[in-house]
Structure formats: C-alpha cells, structure tokens
Nucleic acid binder design. Structure first.
Lengths: 206, 206
DNA sequence: GTCTATAAGAAGATAGAC
DNA sequence: GTCTATCTTCTTATAGAC
C-alpha cells in the first residue's frame, strides 16, 4: 500500500473513532509511521485528506448501489430471481445485509464517521440519511412490492413493510457499532425478528 | 436564569451541534454574553461544564424512568391501566413516545450530544445504548407481556414485539434529528406502522 | 462576577536540508 | 519523500484591576 493510501486508511480509522476535529495531523502521521510535515507532500491540508475519504467512499457506495439495483428497470427479471422466496431466504437477505454493513471495514468506519459528523456537517447528515434510511427502505419496498405482486408475500403497503423489516436491522447495527461484543445477541434477535416478519407476511406453504 | 444555568444551557446546545472538542470556551462565553475568563468563576474548566451537563441530564432521565415504570413491581395495577387497550391507544403510546423524545429540548440536545460522542467516550456510548435501545425495549416488552397475559394482544415473544414496535420509532427519530423538516412525514409513517402493528398483534374486536 | 492582559501550550502548516 | 526547525494562530486557563 502506498503512503497516500495509508494516510487515507489511518485517517478514516481515526476520524471514525474521534471525529475530524479531535484528530490531529500529528496523530495521523504517527499512525502512518512518518512525521507530520511529510503528510503535506501527499495532501495540501488536513481537510483535503477528509475530502479524499469522502469522495472515495461515495464512489464505492455508488458502485455497490448500482450492483444491488441489478435489474431495477426490469421487474420481470427481478421477479424471477425471487421466484422461490422462503423464510430461509428472507433470513439470509436480512442477515446478509446486516453482516455486510457491520463487517465491511470501510463501510463500518465510514458509517461511524458519518454518525459522528452528521450534525456538524449538513452534507454528511444527508448522506447518512440517504445511505442508511431512504435508500435501504426504498430498495426493500421495491423488492416487497415485487414479491407481493408475484404472490409470494401478502401485504398492502410495501413501504411500511420495508420500514418494519429494516428498522430493527438499523437499530441493531448502531447497537453493535457501539459495542461489537453484542453481535451474537443482535444476530439472534435479528433472526427472530425476520422469522416473525415472515410469519406475518409470508404466504402459507400448504 | 442564573449565569451558571445559562452556561450549561448554551454549552449543551453547542456540544449537541459540534461535539465537545469543536466547541471553544470563547464560543460558550459569547453565547452567554460574557467573556471567556468569566466562565472560570462558575466552572473550573471546560470539562467541568461537560460533566455538570452529563450529571444533570442523567438525573432527569432517572426521574423520567422512575415515573414511567410506575407500578413496575405490581403488574396487576399496570394491567388495570391498560384494561381498555385499543388501536387508538397504541398509536398514542407510540406517537407520544416519539413526540416526547423529539420535542423535549433537553432530551433532544442530549441525545444528539450522546450520538456525536458515542465512539470517543465509551461511557457515553453505553448511556446511549441504555437510554435509546435497552431500556425502551425492556419497558415495552414488559407492557406487551402484560397486554398478552390480559388477552388484549396476541403474540408469544414480547421482546421481539417490542423490537418491532420500537425500532421504527428510533429510526424515524434519528431521521428527524438530522432533518426536522421530515417530522410530518415521519409522523405519518409512524402512525401507519403502529396501525399495521395493531393489525398483526391486536385481538379482533368482534 | 465581569473585565483586560497575558501566559503556556497545542495544532496546522511552511521552509529548506538531505 | 522524509526530516528538523520554525512560524502563526488558536485555545485553555490564570492574574489582577474594577
């Protein structure tokens, strides 16, 4: 890893723990293994480091989102993918989303950074809302709408279903961000939640 | 309001917006209407201001919690209170909780401060978890357990019910903290959610 | 209790040698 | 690209007059 990438890496780690204002360029330099003035050969200022992180993480998110929406245009093709929806698949969808958000090192650190900076920087607050409230709910509402249309789930308000499916995921996620030791307990609650969700909205098997 | 109280007041406002490390004593003093050195006649240090806020807000929370748990020991008496549970009452319980968390000026600012400081200060992270995850879920699980025992709701896992009832409240709350203009939309979603919850878990009327 | 003046130190950033 | 030395500004806190 080049020095420039290492600077971004350790800066994200520090920003996600202490927040931008409580991280000093000396700390970044020390974590990288150089002296503070050397940082300025790679970035013009501390703010430029922050901006570079922001840009890179948004790029990655766009990539992931584009990947997830797959055939968003073509509901027919998506329907086919979920042809055989089952409790097990709903559980996998929820647990998978949770695991990805929680375990991907960059996703986790960036979410923590957004959380810390959300009120100081309106743009970051809006980003947090988009990435962790509006996009997931809209995406899941679309999926539920297709599953209902295909007769695989019952229900009449996909958006409320998405709110009810996703909100516990989000809350358990913020819980584990504060205390990673809770992951096992959170996973158990999440599984119970999804099974309950399936019991409520799933079509009877026989 | 005495100067000492005013210092705590404006400090909480500033800390909840920028975070402890990004607030300077000069800003606090300016907001109070005095010069920075005068602050030190009321508090020995900036940290002491922060600690005083923390202590005061925890005192208020204990007070509120004690009030809410009412007859927590005496499930019989609590049962009586909820004798005539209805959709309208569930809605009022959820909306009421939401409104209180969102509109009480001190509660809202303190929550934002905890949110900002949660990763830098483990104690504050634990406090946020207690006040906004564990206590509400435990409290609501107890209520649901009583309502089930009394035949007013159906369901077999009060804790999962509490998770499903409360998580959307929490998510909509964090959403509105970032963007208060969303309150009306959030309130509408919340009401739909609770009605859906009641449809799933409520005993049929006839 | 509030002020002005100021100390003491921290933090971001630059200059210039290597 | 990394270093040491240094500049400038900001920030917390104290001293002492009123």
């Amino acid at each position: 890893m080049g020095t420039k990438e290492k600077i971004l890496d350790v800066s994200l780690e520090l920003f996600s723990q202490k927040g931008y204002g409580n991280v000093y360029v000396g700390q970044i330099a020390e974590a990288v293994g150089i002296k503070a003035p050397s940082l300025y050969k790679h970035f013009r200022s501390k703010r430029e480091i922050f901006d570079a992180i922001l840009e890179e993480m948004q790029r990655r998110y766009q990539e992931t989102a584009a990947g997830l929406q797959m055939n968003g245009q073509d509901a027919g093709a998506d329907g086919a993918i979920f042809q055989k929806v089952s409790e097990e698949q709903l559980v996998q969808m929820g647990i998978g989303l949770f695991r990805y958000f929680l375990h991907d090192e960059y996703v986790r650190k960036f979410r923590k950074m957004l959380t810390i900076e959300q009120f100081a920087d309106k743009e970051l607050g809006a980003l947090l809302t988009r990435q962790y409230v509006e996009d997931p709910i809209e995406y899941q509402a679309q999926i539920f709408e297709m599953l209902i249309a295909g007769g695989l789930l019952k229900g009449d308000d996909p958006k409320i279903m998405a709110l009810e499916f996703y909100s516990p995921i989000y809350m358990l996620l913020t819980w584990c961000d504060r205390d990673p030791k809770k992951e096992k307990e959170a996973m158990g609650l999440l599984e119970s939640h999804i099974k309950q969700f399936n019991k409520q909205y799933g079509r009877k098997k026989k």
